[in-house]
């Protein structure tokens, strides 16, 4: 029961703090923001690794590798694209 309470608290805390921080993000950065949070949501990669913390059947191995590969695609791709976009935003600023 304590566990449940703790997990709920973690969820609510992160949600509220995330919400407050994100409400300060200017509209012009919304696309890079979504692209970055999308990369963060691939944190499910942790779950993929934990799948292999116990004995797995062949079927589970296949699923696990697929999940890890997709999540890795998501994170790395997401951060790289976000970086490319933000470079566009930065480029002009010093000169103007």
């Amino acid at each position: 029961m304590l566990d449940l309470f703790f997990m709920a608290a973690v969820f609510v805390f992160s949600f509220v703090v995330g919400y407050l921080l994100i409400s300060k993000v200017p509209t012009r950065l919304h696309t890079p923001l979504m692209s970055m949070t999308n990369a963060i949501s691939a944190i499910t990669i942790l779950g993929g690794i934990l799948l292999f913390a116990v004995e797995t059947t062949l079927f589970q191995k296949i699923l696990g590798v697929a999940a890890i590969a997709l999540a890795a695609f998501n994170t790395l791709g997401g951060f790289v694209i976000t970086d490319r976009m933000l470079r566009l935003f930065k480029r002009k600023e010093p000169s103007s």
């Binding site: 969820f11 992160s14 995330g18 919400y19 979504m34 949070t37 949501s41 499910t44 934990l50």
Partner: peptide, 20 residues
Amino acid sequence: IQNRLLIACGATVAASGSLL
């Protein structure tokens, strides 16, 4: 899987998506 990091990161993303 009882992993707090996953819960926290997921919740932040959910907040961002809801706000947008």
